[in-house]
Write a protein that binds this DNA or RNA. Structure first.
Lengths: 153, 153
DNA sequence: GCGGACTAGTTGAACATTCAACATATGGAA
DNA sequence: TTCCATATGTTGAATGTTCAACTAGTCCGC
């Protein structure tokens, strides 16, 4: 085994800032969404992707991919969301294995309410504290990361 | 309630790239660490912080803060790590409420092995795909985010 | 040195996520 | 057609995490 290529001091510092910052940012948003709207970030993410899909519905596999979740996790989470009446499942006529997750009107309404608060949080803790050029750099960088890691597991 | 200040198209794109990218990056690192060394990212993080502390030990509260975890979570995770023999707990002489988490030799050895692989993963999926200026921007940005969200919950 | 407010850390139950196994359906090759 | 490899989605058990309650110790004003 060859000697690992350790990070230099600057890389180390920047990488750590990212790790710590992103963990705490997520935690902040999670608590915020949860206390105000009873949603976790990943539930919120599911509602967002559905709301943007044609007819507000997606096949489970595609939704899993969009929301960066495993199918199993999505399946469980969808059951929970279904229990809350925010999503319902429909079977797919073309492919009998398939299942559509459909955003309900109540789900859409909940999402609308949540999004209003969420965007404020995102601004307060992220957008508004970051230089516009740095934000662009972040977008560029994580776009590449996304390409590099490839499609979801 | 006033109209929310929605993100513009660019902000939206960059924010989303970050959200998706970071979720998948974490997932990638988690699987990597877990399959090769049986550690989750948060366990790894704990070992790292301990290894850097004087005498390789820290009070639980401080460790929780450093590793961005709740005390409860740390307590459970430490029990697991103790079970694996990577960490042990010592009581604190000064403050009888206090507990030190101490990295064992085995813990240090495991960390050393894990770190060698981990740094490769970090390079492959993050450092090496990002322009150095963009990495600096990330460090700068998340440093500010970290300040903004304040100490851990 | 008493009493009340606060801090450290743990615990167990509720909840969420992962993992592997499963049931079902598709699609193509022989 | 039949068979087999592959894809979809769900399930339950094991594992992790969160939440609230709790024990125990410290701090500080009186």
């Amino acid at each position: 085994m060859s000697e690992p290529r350790w990070l230099d001091a600057t890389q180390q510092r920047d990488w750590r800032a990212y790790v710590d910052g992103s963990v705490r940012l997520t935690e902040t948003m999670d608590r915020d969404l949860k206390t105000k709207h009873g949603l976790s970030v990943s539930e919120y993410e599911i509602l967002v992707r559905l709301s943007e899909a044609p007819e507000r519905r997606l096949r489970m596999a595609e939704l899993a991919e969009n929301a960066s979740q495993s199918r199993s996790r999505l399946s469980h989470t969808c059951s929970r969301l279904e229990g809350k009446g925010l999503v319902k499942r429909d079977s797919c006529p073309n492919d009998k294995r398939g299942v559509f997750a459909q955003l309900t009107d109540e789900g859409y309404a909940t999402l609308e309410r949540a999004a209003r608060d969420h965007v404020e949080t995102v601004r307060t803790f992220f957008i508004d504290v970051i230089q516009p050029e740095d934000l662009e750099a972040i977008g560029r960088a994580f776009g590449l990361v996304l390409k590099r890691v490839g499609p979801a597991t």
